[in-house]
């Protein structure tokens, strides 16, 4: 491979990873935008999503990498898998909000954040105790179609991931910017009290944010499985921290910012293996997190969260 091919290949990989991180980052941003809360349970909602996806695909008889589908069956199975995963993680997110976080949301100080750390731990260990710590083989039902662009390879997998991410993010943008509930969400993010006085049901808006954010994390979990062909109980932590970096990089609370931030982090991870040793990639990513928070806490594109003090 020439250098140009190498760069192109890492660009292809990076955009795919970036799409996944962006989906995950959106959940952080939606919740932070409204509650000013770093939701640590989001890390492992993503992980649970990848397991729900694994079980759904298993239920279709897809085990390991042996069964390959094409055409309508493939589209149908993937559609069902995404729907089931997203609804499951969405409901999980809403449950966490409704039954746990709602009780501590108004407490001053770190109580709400510590609660989300606890929830994250519970999710992680429930999965760990029921399935074990070892990595699970994730089905790969996609046919091995690929296009050669120079020396770089563009596989069907990547194209599919791009399309799905594009559709989901487009849908989210439409929802936030064009629908009545999306408008209510933007208003609540600016000022929950004023929004409440204008007749917006703030609790419903918050639940919607948790549902949408968690559903996107579930989709991210499925994409993780399709991309890496494995999942394990421990994937949530590192992916979550990277996605949080993406959200901060784009300006937390800022929906388009989270998408671009995700893309940047994906590109860094993909090129990290090439330019610096893979072992140090996370040091680079976490250093970016620290540097952005210290020197430009509003991120590259500006915070959209209100300044509640």
């Amino acid at each position: 491979m020439t250098t140009a091919d190498l760069i192109l290949q890492q660009l292809i990989n990076g955009v795919s990873l970036g799409a996944m991180y962006a989906l995950l980052a959106l959940g952080f941003t939606l919740v932070y935008g409204i509650l000013e809360l770093i939701n640590f349970s989001h890390f492992n909602i993503f992980m649970v999503g990848s397991f729900v996806a694994l079980m759904t695909l298993d239920a279709f008889g897809l085990k390991g990498q042996t069964v390959v589908l094409t055409g309508l069956p493939l589209a149908g199975v993937l559609l069902v898998a995404f729907l089931v995963t997203m609804v499951a993680t969405g409901v999980l997110g809403v449950g966490i909000e409704r039954f746990l976080l709602r009780r501590v949301r108004h407490v001053k100080g770190p109580a709400a954040m510590i609660t989300t750390i606890g929830v994250s731990y519970i999710l992680l260990n429930v999965v760990l105790l029921t399935t074990g710590a070892d990595a699970k083989n994730f089905p790969n039902p996609l046919p091995a179609v690929h296009y050669d662009i120079g020396g770089a390879v563009l596989r069907l997998r990547e194209i599919l991931i791009w399309i799905i991410a594009f559709v989901l993010m487009g849908g989210l943008s439409y929802f936030v910017n064009r629908t009545r509930l999306g408008k209510a969400m933007r208003a609540t993010a600016q000022d929950p009290d004023a929004a409440r006085m204008m007749g917006i049901e703030v609790d419903r808006v918050i639940m919607t944010a948790f549902f949408v954010g968690s559903a996107l994390a579930g989709a991210g979990g499925l994409i993780f499985g399709l991309y890496y062909n494995f999942t394990s109980a421990s994937v949530g932590f590192v992916a979550g921290l990277r996605a949080f970096t993406a959200a901060v990089l784009g300006g937390i609370g800022n929906v388009p910012g989270a998408m671009v931030g995700g893309l940047i982090i994906g590109l860094i991870e993909a090129s990290g293996g090439q330019l610096i040793a893979t072992a140090w990639t996370d040091v680079v990513i976490f250093s970016i997190l620290v540097l952005v928070l210290v020197f430009r806490p509003s991120g590259l594109f500006g915070r959209m969260a209100p300044n509640k003090s």
């Binding site: 746990l100 501590v104 407490v107 606890g118 929830v119 260990n125």
Partner: peptide, 18 residues
């Protein structure tokens, strides 16, 4: 399951006995 117990302790303490 000690870590699970830790998680439950965090949540229960935050909800009921901060």
């Amino acid at each position: 399951s000690i870590e699970l117990i830790f998680g439950i302790i965090l949540v229960v303490m935050m909800l009921f006995r901060r």
